[in-house]
């Protein structure tokens, strides 16, 4: 199944490699899986209202965090691995202590489901994107549960948010990727014309990969806003699915609604590799920050670890 030119990519191969582990435990769809900062651990969350901390390399289930009252859609961990933030159907952000497994704070403010959440570089602010067409920032250091910033210039549900040192970037179903430059006080709107499902930042920080609901991934140059490349072949029409770039920025990875994983060459947009990873929708892919290792999660309730 793997095409030529897929050397160095995790996935199913003819001789060895491929799937390294299956992390089972979620009772129901796994909606997101994320490596932590150094890639030694991973977190998954799902429809069973729990977050699970795993060691994907051993593999071992370490801890379950359950306090959510509805499905958990996204999770992010601080760089020092001390705190978690998660969001989901219950319109709140949960700010967790990793070791004790207790909720430190719940950030209210969103009027609807929260799709995505991220810590900033200093782990002092949590920025979340919600179905209520807004991006909200919450202060982790204050006692207040109210947002310190509300960005509501979006026309439709905001699906994904990523942060850089100085910017908040968010992709919305209204077809825009909006970059909010805190330093400059500017909002840059890149209208892609198609609903944006997920955005991902390249490791060099110069490009944004936007997964659109017309089954196309689009690579944007951040400085000029021009479209660099389009990646097609997978199916992404109705579910919230993740996309990402590999650690070397050489390939683009995305799941597909038929359970396949697709690898594209970044430059010439050819499908380098594709294989069936799950029996159902691949909801999330996460690539190891250093090694050729990848996590995929699916509606079939499993998280799979793929290695070279």
């Amino acid at each position: 199944m793997a095409a030529s030119g897929a050397e160095g990519l995790p996935g199913r191969r003819e001789g060895g490699g491929g799937e390294a582990a299956v992390l089972r435990g979620h009772e129901g769809a796994v909606l997101a899986v994320r490596f932590n900062g150094d890639g030694n651990y991973c977190l998954s969350c799902g429809r069973d209202r729990t977050l699970r901390l795993w060691n994907p390399h051993r593999p071992a289930h370490i801890k379950t965090y359950s306090s959510h009252a509805r499905e958990v859609r996204d999770v992010h961990v601080t760089t020092d691995n001390a705190k978690l933030v998660s969001c989901g159907g219950d319109r709140q952000l949960f700010y967790w202590d990793v070791s004790s497994g207790r909720v430190i704070r719940k950030f209210r403010g969103h009027d609807s489901e929260v799709n995505s959440v991220k810590f900033n570089e200093y782990n002092s602010v949590v920025v979340s994107a919600g179905y209520d067409r807004s991006v909200r920032a919450f202060d982790c250091r204050s006692q207040s549960a109210e947002p310190i910033q509300i960005v509501d210039s979006f026309q439709d549900s905001v699906m994904s948010v990523i942060l850089t040192k100085t910017e908040i970037i968010a992709g919305s179903v209204d077809g825009t990727v909006r970059t909010f430059d805190i330093r400059m006080g500017r909002e840059v709107v890149d209208n892609l014309g198609h609903p944006v499902n997920c955005i991902s930042l390249s490791n060099d920080g110069n490009c944004i990969l936007a997964s659109c609901l017309d089954s196309t991934l689009r690579l944007l140059d951040r400085s000029t806003g021009e479209l660099l490349q389009e990646y097609k072949g997978h199916t992404c029409k109705s579910f919230k699915m993740d996309c990402c770039l590999t650690n070397t920025d050489a390939h683009v990875v995305s799941g597909s609604e038929d359970g396949f994983i697709f690898f594209w060459d970044l430059v010439d947009a050819s499908v380098v590799s594709s294989f069936r990873a799950h029996s159902s929708v691949v909801t999330s892919v996460s690539y190891h920050p250093k090694d050729a290792c990848m996590l995929t999660s699916s509606v079939d309730g499993t998280v799979r670890v793929w290695k070279q």
Binding site: D139, D181, I182, G185, R186, V189, N191, G225
Partner: peptide, 16 residues
């Protein structure tokens, strides 16, 4: 497409 527009956006002081 993609079309780029720019607006002024005011981050809150605490966010900065």
């Amino acid at each position: 497409h993609p079309k780029r527009e720019e607006f002024e956006w005011r981050p809150s002081p605490i966010l900065c």
